[in-house]
Design a protein around this nucleic acid. Structure first.
Lengths: 189, 189
DNA sequence: AATGACTACTCACATTCATGACTAGGGAAG
DNA sequence: CTTCCCTAGTCATGAATGTGAGTAGTCATT
């Protein structure tokens, strides 16, 4: 059970409704996991049944009533236990890498198009993460914030997300260059 | 269907038996995907049934008979189609990131232990990828190899794997430092 | 006045992934 | 001479994840 703990960790930041949670997971602000709304609602139901979170209904005037959830003590204990447990090494599952693995056997232009798209996507995420980080640390420098800030967990995971996307972008650009050069040099023969 | 194409891409490198394939996926040499033996055997069966790969039995003296598989023309066409198709943006799924997200609410030492373990794992992978890359490019420099080498697909994916693990290691070390410093500064108050 | 987008969810189903247990022969180490 | 590991797989089952479709009211746009 992995989504379970991702949801718990996300709810630590404060009360959220199922819908708000789906937004967070959707944008990938919670950049450490991804899930569909349906999965999140199902998980919330299970977590509440198990007493790891508790919800309270908030009646709204113009909107449907929503339920805000927070982590209970039992939920915290569960997270503590999870943290101590063995973490399965994370593996990448990336269509794009599969495509590049087959680079010598498929059309270069097609591949380059895919890589450009990914590079653009990565760049957008880099901007997003940059903004999020600036917002989280406020006026402080990164060093100061990490030393004295109150909640650094989300900041640290965001840093990893940022570095990851920078890596993605750089690798995509490098790969595009390589493929282009090979194409030209072969065209001359 | 993603494993499907990962297997196809892996088989492009040459004929492999199911068992050899499991080794490749197990070590993570095929660093772009990961799968259990059972999944691979099942996938090979399906791929053969669909005519995307073909196998030939090789009788061995002391070992059980094995079947070596290669990609058919239909398989190549399938890969071509896959390459052109939309790639769902890859998301990370990492227990460790979930744990760090909850950093402000769980025990630091536990977290540091997990981060150290991951850093060591990443370092080992870095060494492995380094060796693989040197082996693939032989006497050539990276630039020369990427320009003129025959099969660069696996090299390129390996480069991404290397950068990823370097990113992992650096982030783990940075995070450990941050957590340690916070602990000490709080201990003084 | 209709169309589409947003909030806030639920149900049901399909696919994918992971796991334990099992067969069966050979070789190496103690 | 027994125990363990390696090759080379198969079978069955369960857990996790993904997806399509539907409900129902609100709000802004054209």
């Amino acid at each position: 059970m992995a989504l379970r703990h991702a949801v718990l960790a996300a709810l630590l930041e404060g009360e959220l409704s199922g819908y708000q949670l789906t937004k967070a997971f959707d944008i990938g602000v919670a950049n450490f996991w991804h899930a569909q709304p349906q999965q999140l609602y199902a998980e919330l139901t299970r977590l509440e049944k198990d007493g790891l979170i508790a919800g309270r209904a908030v009646v709204q005037e113009t909107r449907p009533t929503k339920r805000l959830f927070h982590v209970t003590d039992a939920g915290l204990a569960e997270l503590e236990e999870f943290t101590a447990a063995f973490a399965k090494p994370s593996f990448i599952r990336d269509d794009l890498l599969v495509k590049v693995q087959a680079a010598d056997h498929v059309d270069s232009e097609t591949l380059i198009a895919q890589l450009s798209e990914r590079a653009a996507f990565a760049e957008a995420k880099i901007q997003l993460f940059g903004k999020l980080l600036r917002k989280m640390r406020g006026d402080l420098t990164e060093e100061e914030f990490l030393r004295h800030g109150r909640r650094i967990g989300p900041y640290l995971t965001c840093l990893r997300g940022l570095a990851l996307e920078q890596g993605n972008r750089d690798w995509c650009e490098r790969t595009i260059t390589v493929l282009r050069e090979r194409k030209h040099s072969r065209a001359r023969h």
